[in-house]
Design a binder for these strands. Structure first.
Length: 1082
RNA sequence: GGGCGAUUAGCUCAGUCGGUUAGAGCGCUUCUCUGAUAAGGAAGAGGUCCCUGGUUCGAAUCCAGGAUCGCCCA
């Protein structure tokens, strides 16, 4: 890629935020994003999906993280030749939006919402949802601004919105399809519920409301029903089970007791609180804890398994129980012997574990006939015993038999109920119990866990399919697959998709208002689109939301169908995004597009989305198509502040992304996020860290380009053409570029931007601090080969950097005269194997190491680098020596020595120390290693080295056996003798000849003066090409030194004349001598 | 309580298949170089590789248990 030097002017004092604004304008005016897509028309698509954020909150710095990772891979894949559509999207529905509106309108409960217009629920919902619709995009402008500012290329104009009619219609079609497969059903779900607010709370809300309270807990006796004991039962007439409960109010809903099938239980004789003795059954490990020290174990124990099916008398019997008030024992693995009695009271209406245990047991037919819970069907809410109303008081099933409990909050009745149990002789013991209990974060009311009818998707039935689909996905980091996500899938339960709320996709289920003759349940119809609804009802909805959709009824088969009141879980919206964004299947074009972009190559969100979007995408895709919706998933971690604290408004440590972007620039933030660590580990954000990236990467890169531009300009302006030849350094940096390209390509292909970025960073360091540094004279001379090599390297960097730091990369590319209008229209570079020279790279590494040793020897000797020395004596053999000879000029220059001298081996400079090469010898000797090590360390290193050089065998004797050692079995290193200017590293050492004679001293002095002349030039503000007249005065020895080296000095400082008198001005001190330096432009 | 992850220099992080004296950058001290750089180079100080036990000739690395922190769930 040889091209004429560019005439770019690259300002070394560049402000990156200003540069980015300029580049963004150029992208807009040249229409670069659209063209980057157009030029890939017909190319193989690479599918990226934007997980839709909600724009009702201000974007934070963690959104910058998400957006830059969503940007880097699409840019890379576009350059790789793919067509990468990037469509934005917005999540519009859901509780976060509703809560924001509730706050804004000062509402505190569903009751408040439904009375926004007093007494008119419909009008209230209309007004509330209108407010939600307004609120959704409160911060849309900030989001758009942030997106553009960080350089995230995504189509914002055509972004999909989950509240649009077409989107809703697509979600409906998916539900209809799932229903046709029998995957949609209504059942019950136990939720944390505030009886005062009349609403269920999300787990997030529950988490903020825990308080420590004291409750009354009770050990309750459940007498077994003797005539239902089997012949083999370990129990006898008169025995009781004992259960422990911290919520006595739930005993009215007790239908079963659970034991652990593998735990040992015993019968025990124990007095109750009134001293009355009973024979009770508890887990053996808990006898003393539950029954007290006076308990006496009767007979031998038996496993919980043998208690299964035992029937007992329920402590409280609500009216209408089919069993006359009897419960049965079932087995459940979750029963532990950590606390309680090992027998657990189950009230499926008020506990999720209880609910699931009974569901499983009923499904397995584990209940004896005639027991209420035997009829339990999770899909039929009427089979669940729940005698508590949503207002938190017992309903008439309880109050008709126990009127004293009417009208009171059930949780306040615990003490009364315990007292009644005691009176009836069923209380074994009671206990005050202090624990942390959830309360409503809004009103402080204790929450109760409460079963409510809910709609489900039967995902547990396709658990294996979910796991199989997950198996095809590549996760970053890898452990998510089998760990967090895999575990979650293995524990999959049916997805509760309905919410008794207002602002969401309406559940498209219309139910008959009456139960048809001969059927047990109302008939229901799932509507698959707004068009279908229009066909059935004659009503065409413009807005599919509540309350309008609630108005739509239709008649079929003599039945009136009305919609159920629920809306859908927002996650169902986002999980439908692959087809709903296209309006599939209703829109034919959209359907065709969807068919071709069905599976994402890449999605990227926060780690918390394993339970959110990553799951909803997978679940819906598996239910509908039995395949994974994505191939690669990248998870991002949390951003903490610089002290490792979570950012929160109350702590005042929230980083404003716009402030950071204005100060450092988007590329600086991008670079920080990409290279500081693997993104899923989470970040400790600090301005310092971002600034370091600018200082250590962006600025050196920019200044290297600026350096290039300056000398390219000078060369272009020069009258005479200069000849140039390719040097080892040129070949080296070209080879390094290819190596870097290869690493970056492989890393980005594997979704590892950290490794790619770090490799590019290392390359820039090598370019700036070695290639340019060692080639400066060639640039001063206008060497066209050096210039074009540097330009190629910079263009190479710009291209590799394009996905990561798109602004700086593009500005460099354009300024350096890249062939396209933008680097983002260029192809990703293929690795040019012919330009790769790994031997040269290794040699250069050796040469740099030699320089490092030489500089260390310099520092140790106290002779600074400006003072020329006669020679460096280098210990090296074989490849190392060849490398150093090959690159000798680089080394003599850098060390400021006249010549390099080699000694064949270290013997002349020091002693060879021997060490065993454990990696080679370990497997061979195993336990004998200690002896081998001792034997080797006893050898004379220099003699061994000499022997190996001569090809003679080296033998050690270990426990009477001789073992021959080869060169690979030994590590040789040099030991530094005292008092020499020598530095060593491994087998490699550099010593300096420290004798400075008069000639060398004069040369050093001349160079010291020269340095002062350069300072004077800079102080005078001359351009680097200005010719000068130089006048010197002062110390004679210094002037003599300059006379001796006048040609050299004059050439270095571009002096056309040198005079040794008449200089005026303040003297400067050079190596302790006073010299006056005067420079004048000619 | 369960699942997953993390813990290496004052800070931010590397550390390959178990192998030799555990590295880098920042910061600090001292010195140095400079026709690009807010840069570069050299030296120095700074380590219980979270702890305990195990496997092994050999453990930052593998195994078990524990501690602390984080995320997710209950």
């Amino acid at each position: 890629m040889s091209a004429p030097p560019s005439r770019a002017v690259i300002d070394p004092r560049q402000s990156f935020p200003e540069l980015e604004a300029r580049v963004a304008e150029r992208w807009a005016s040249r229409n670069v994003f659209a063209r980057s897509l157009e030029q890939r028309d017909g190319a193989e698509p690479w599918v990226f999906w934007e997980g839709p954020p909600t724009a009702n909150g201000r974007p934070g710095v963690h959104h910058v993280l998400g957006r830059v990772f969503k940007d880097v891979f699409p840019r890379f894949q576009t350059m790789r030749g793919h067509r990468v559509e990037r469509r934005g999207g917005w999540d519009c529905h859901g509780l976060p939006v509703e809560i924001a509106v509730e706050k804004q309108l000062g509402l505190h409960s569903k009751h408040d919402i439904e009375n926004l217009v007093p007494g008119d629920t419909r009008a209230s919902i209309e007004r509330f949802n209108a407010a939600c619709r307004e609120s959704v995009f409160t911060f849309l402008e900030d989001w758009d601004r942030l997106t553009r500012r960080v350089g995230f290329w995504v189509d914002l104009e055509d972004a999909y919105r989950t509240m649009d009619a077409s989107y809703v219609s697509s979600v409906w079609s998916a539900l209809k399809e799932m229903d046709e497969q029998g995957r949609l059903y209504q059942g019950n779900k136990v939720v944390p519920f505030c009886t005062r607010c009349g609403t269920a709370l999300s787990s997030h809300e529950v988490a903020q409301g825990y308080q420590d309270i004291k409750d009354t807990s009770a050990y309750v006796r459940l007498p077994v029903v003797a005539d239902r004991l089997g012949p083999d039962s370990p129990l006898q007439d008169g025995d009781s089970l004992v259960v422990w409960t911290t919520t006595p109010w739930t005993l009215w809903a007790n239908v079963a007791a659970a034991v652990n099938p593998d735990v040992e239980y015993v019968r025990a004789q124990a007095p109750d609180r009134d001293g009355v003795g009973h024979v009770v059954v508890v887990a053996r490990d808990l006898v003393e804890a539950a029954l007290g020290e006076d308990a006496e174990i009767l007979g031998s124990g038996f496993t919980g398994e043998r208690l299964a099916g035992v029937v007992y008398e329920a402590p409280f019997v609500a009216e209408g129980r089919r069993d006359g008030g009897r419960g049965a024992v079932i087995t459940a693995d979750f029963v532990s012997t950590d606390s309680g009695t090992g027998v657990v009271h189950l009230a499926p209406a008020f506990g999720q574990d209880d609910f699931v245990a009974i569901q499983d047991a009923a499904g397995a037919g584990a209940f004896p006939a005639g027991i209420d819970a035997a009829a339990f069907d999770a899909r039929d809410p009427t089979t669940l015993l729940n005698p508590v109303g949503e207002d938190g008081t017992y309903d008439e099933r309880v109050t008709s038999v126990a009127p004293q409990y009417a009208g009171r909050f059930v949780k306040d009745l615990d003490l009364d109920l315990v007292t009644e149990l005691a009176e009836r002789g069923l209380l074994h013991r009671k206990q005050r119990y202090e624990h942390s209990y959830p309360h409503c974060w809004r009103c402080g009311t204790p929450l109760i866990y409460y079963a409510r009818p809910s709609w489900y998707l039967a995902t547990a039935a396709v658990r294996d399919n979910l796991l199989a689909a997950n198996d095809t996905v590549t996760w970053h980091p890898e452990h998510i697959k089998e760990g967090r996500f895999g575990e979650w899938l293995r524990g999959n339960v049916d997805w509760a998709i309905s919410r008794s709320r207002y602002w969401g996709t309406p559940l498209p289920v219309w139910q008959s208002t009456t139960v048809p003759e001969g059927e047990e349940l109302p008939r229901r119809v799932v509507i698959g689109s707004l068009d279908e609804l229009a066909e059935r009802s004659g009503v065409t909805l413009d807005d599919p939301h509540r309350p309008y959709v609630d108005d739509v009824e239709f008649e079929e088969d003599g039945l009136t169908f009305r919609r159920v009141p629920e809306v859908l879980d927002v996650w169902l919206d986002s999980g439908a995004m692959p087809f709903a964004q296209d309006g599939a299947p209703h829109d034919p074009d959209g359907l065709a597009h969807y068919e071709q972009h069905r599976i994402a190559d890449f999605v990227c969100e926060g780690l918390d989305q394993t339970r959110g979007w990553f799951y909803s995408l997978l679940a819906e895709s598996v239910l509908l198509r039995d395949e994974a919706p994505y191939k690669n998933v990248l998870c991002l971690g949390l951003i903490l502040d610089e002290n490792g604290q979570k950012m929160s408004k109350s702590k005042g440590n929230v980083v404003d992304p716009f402030e950071a972007l204005d100060r450092f620039g988007a590329d600086a933030l991008r670079w920080y996020f990409f290279t500081s660590k693997q993104p899923w580990e989470g970040y400790r954000y600090s301005d310092e860290a971002v600034r370091d990236g600018v200082r250590l990467f962006l600025l050196p890169l920019w200044n290297t380009a600026s350096f290039y531009a300056q000398y390219a300009q000078i060369a272009a302006d020069a009258d005479e053409a200069v000849e140039g030849t390719t040097t080892e350094l040129d070949r080296w940096i070209a080879s390094r570029l290819q190596a870097t390209t290869q690493i970056a390509t492989e890393a980005l292909d594997a979704y590892d931007v950290t490794t790619a970025g770090r490799a590019i960073g290392s390359f820039v360091d090598e370019l700036s601090n070695w290639y340019v540094r060692r080639s400066r004279r060639r640039f001063w001379a206008g060497d066209p080969v050096a210039l074009s090599t540097l330009r190629d390297a910079l263009l190479g960097v710009a291209t590799l950097l394009a996905p990561l730091a798109p602004f700086v990369a593009d500005e460099l590319y354009v300024q350096l005269g890249g062939e396209h209008d933008s680097v983002h229209l260029a192809d990703w570079p293929a690795v040019d194997v012919s330009a790769r020279d790994e031997a040269l790279e290794a040699d250069m590494a050796t040469a740099r190491e030699t320089v490092r040793l030489g500089l260390a020897a310099r520092a140790a000797s106290g002779l600074n680098v400006r003072q020329p020395l006669r020679k460096a004596v280098i210990v090296a053999t074989g490849d190392e020596r060849a490398a150093i000879e090959r690159l000798g000029a680089v080394i003599t220059d850098e060390l400021n020595v006249k010549t390099l001298e080699f000694v064949a081996d270290a013997d002349e400079l020091g002693r060879v120390a021997l060490k065993p090469n454990l990696r080679a010898l370990g497997p061979r000797f195993g336990k004998g290693m200690k002896d081998v090590r001792a034997a080797i360390e006893g050898l004379d290193g220099s003699r061994v080295a000499a022997a190996l050089r001569a090809g003679e065998p080296v033998v050690v004797q270990v426990q009477g056996t001789d073992h021959e050692l080869g060169e690979d079995d030994l590590l040789m290193s040099l030991e530094t003798p005292e008092g020499y200017g020598l530095e060593r590293e491994g087998r490699h050492a550099v010593a300096l000849d420290l004798e400075v004679d008069d000639a060398l001293r004069a040369e050093g002095l001349a160079r010291a003066v020269l340095r002062q002349v350069q300072v004077a030039r800079q102080d005078a503000g001359f351009e680097v090409t200005d010719r000068i007249a130089l006048r010197l005065a002062g110390d004679e020895a210094a002037l003599d030194a300059v006379r001796t080296h006048e040609a050299y000095v004059a050439a270095e400082v571009l002096a056309e004349s040198v005079a040794y008198d008449g200089a005026t001005g303040a003297p400067v001190t050079v190596d302790g001598r006073e010299v006056v330096v005067e420079v004048a432009k000619v």
